[in-house]
Design a protein around this nucleic acid. Structure first.
Length: 477
RNA sequence: CGAGGUGUAGCGCAGUUGGCUAGCGCGCCUGCUUUGGGAGCAGGAUGUCGGGGGUUCAAGUCCCUUCACCUCGACCA
């Protein structure tokens, strides 16, 4: 009976993963659809996750010396067009404003799809001396990319993100920054989202428009597909030359700056959903969960129950994000509801517990029930939340490790991609033609050239010529 | 952008060859009783039938048009 109802609420995860995803984002009240294609309304519960992501990441940015700024929403067409690779990459998905009030604009304005050009324009004016460097800026904004196929969080027309943009005196310093921020993202995924990632370099075909190098963290979803979860770009002095960003060095010589940019978006919420979720719905990693602990009173009308629950809420509230649900819904209804919404830890408190000075804790990640004494509750809850985080990470790590397989020839490769959800490690000659052929024949793309290289074979999986690099391949969102 | 599908109450749906005041379940509101895995009884509220146009004595139903969403593909740096 209970199972029946659950099945009605959320499609089973392994029956139809796509439908499961749609059910979860709606039923967990993360978003509401909007009347403009690809635009989503972030509801309080969904936005709270984003706020916690912002809080965690922003702290890491500040700790590495970055400052927040806010750039304009509009980019004049002439500004966008200064760097030709960049504009060519983004032109197909740019939204344009051509009218202001009742007047046609003399120059149309692009709604920012990313802000490299805005930062560059600004940097060209505020950087004069080596003393002005480095500039370590970041902004938390939304951007617009006119997408043809959209899905909540994974690919939306407008999405929220942060974009860091830095300018440095030397190429070496900029390269270090690029890698440093990639590490920040990977650490954030591990320590806050409990998601393991593969770090690596994007191929020429896959890199960002205008970048010299693009680094990425790739995560594996429940269905074995890859999600590009954050990227960090090294620009060399390409943008600096296009926008004339020069400084006087210590010898009074004019030099171009070397730049980076790096971003992480609301897509990361899609990663949380698709890595940790299960048949009961969302499973949230404790450190970004809007509600870390939900207290469910049992028989709340019985003397002392509600009072004790409130007391516990107040006590735990000093250390955690706690919700007490004292509504008159049935306890079973509440259990299902907060499981669907992914709350990491549930505390049940009923008359029987009161007598024994205890409560019952239930972990969302594995369903384990633990009886806790009320005497040491704060420490025990902290410990359990940490255990949930670790449990989620370990499970995701196992899932990732067990689904990365090796292929030496195209037949193996195609068979793995088609029949075994996950990533495939294979050697590559470095030729974009092989990369394209692999994509055409198997649907898999080069996710990245991982930092941790192995030699699986001496020859390219596609053409048989000498191999240059081991590449991680996979189908991607 | 191509193929297919779907739009009727907050959600899920029914609505016959066009015919009277557009229904059902869940949810929602009020009251009482309940409470350790989605409670029970009683009473109650809620509709631009996605939008626009047309045919007709009469349109949720037929025609044209338009918009959105979903699935698959193409595209997507």
């Amino acid at each position: 009976m209970a199972d029946q109802k659950k099945v009605e609420a959320i499609t089973a995860i392994d029956v139809d993963f796509t439908q499961w995803y749609t059910d979860v984002v709606l039923k967990a009240e993360l978003i509401d659809y909007f009347s403009v294609k690809g635009c989503m309304i972030l509801r309080p519960y969904g936005y709270a996750i984003w706020e916690n992501i912002q809080k965690g990441l922003d702290g890491m940015f500040k700790a590495t010396g970055h400052e927040n700024v806010a750039m304009p929403l509009f980019i004049p067409e002439s500004l966008l067009q200064k760097e030709k690779d960049h504009v060519a990459g983004f032109a197909p998905e740019v939204a344009w404003v051509t009218q202001g009030g009742s007047e046609t604009l003399t120059e149309r304005l692009c709604v920012r799809p990313t802000s490299e050009t805005l930062f560059c324009d600004h940097y060209s004016r505020v950087i004069q001396s080596w003393r002005d460097l480095p500039k370590l800026y970041n902004q938390w904004v939304s951007v617009v990319r006119w997408e043809k196929t959209t899905r909540p969080f994974l690919r939306t027309t407008e999405f929220y993100w942060q974009e860091g943009h830095t300018a440095h005196a030397t190429a070496e310093e900029a390269k270090l920054e690029t890698r440093r921020m990639l590490d920040v993202y990977a650490d954030f995924f591990r320590d806050f989202l409990a998601i393991p990632v593969v770090k690596g370099l994007k191929t020429e075909n896959e890199k960002f428009a205008g970048a010299v190098d693009t680094y990425t963290i790739e995560a594996m979803m429940h269905d074995g597909k890859a999600l590009q979860s954050a990227t960090s770009h090294y620009f060399g002095d390409g943008f600096a030359r296009a926008f004339d960003i020069q400084y006087s060095d210590r010898n009074n010589q004019q030099q171009y700056v070397h730049q980076t940019s790096w971003g992480l978006s609301t897509r990361s919420i899609g990663a949380i959903i698709m890595v940790h979720g299960d048949d009961s719905g969302l499973v949230l990693p404790p450190r970004v969960a809007p509600v870390q602990v939900v207290i469910i009173p049992i028989a709340a009308h019985k003397p002392g129950v509600l009072e004790k629950a409130q007391q516990i809420q107040s006590q735990l509230g000093a250390s955690f994000r706690v919700k007490l649900d004292s509504s008159d819904k049935m306890p079973g209804w509440k259990f299902s509801e907060y499981e669907m919404k992914g709350v990491p830890l549930r505390l049940e408190l009923g008359p029987r517990d009161l007598q024994q000075n205890q409560c019952v804790a239930v972990r969302r990640d594995n369903g384990e029930k633990i009886v806790l004494s009320l005497d040491n509750l704060t420490a025990d809850v902290q410990s359990l939340l940490d255990q949930v985080h670790d449990g989620l990470y370990r499970k995701a790590q196992n899932s990732l490790d067990s689904r990365i397989r090796s292929a030496v020839g195209m037949a193996d490769f195609a068979d793995l991609i088609q029949n075994k959800p996950g990533f495939v490690k294979a050697m590559w000659c470095g030729d974009g033609a092989c990369e394209q052929k692999i994509k055409d024949e198997t649907g898999a793309t080069a996710r990245c050239i991982p930092f941790e290289q192995e030699t699986i074979a001496d020859t390219c999986v596609c053409c048989g010529r000498p191999a240059q690099k081991m590449v991680i391949w996979g189908k991607a969102y």
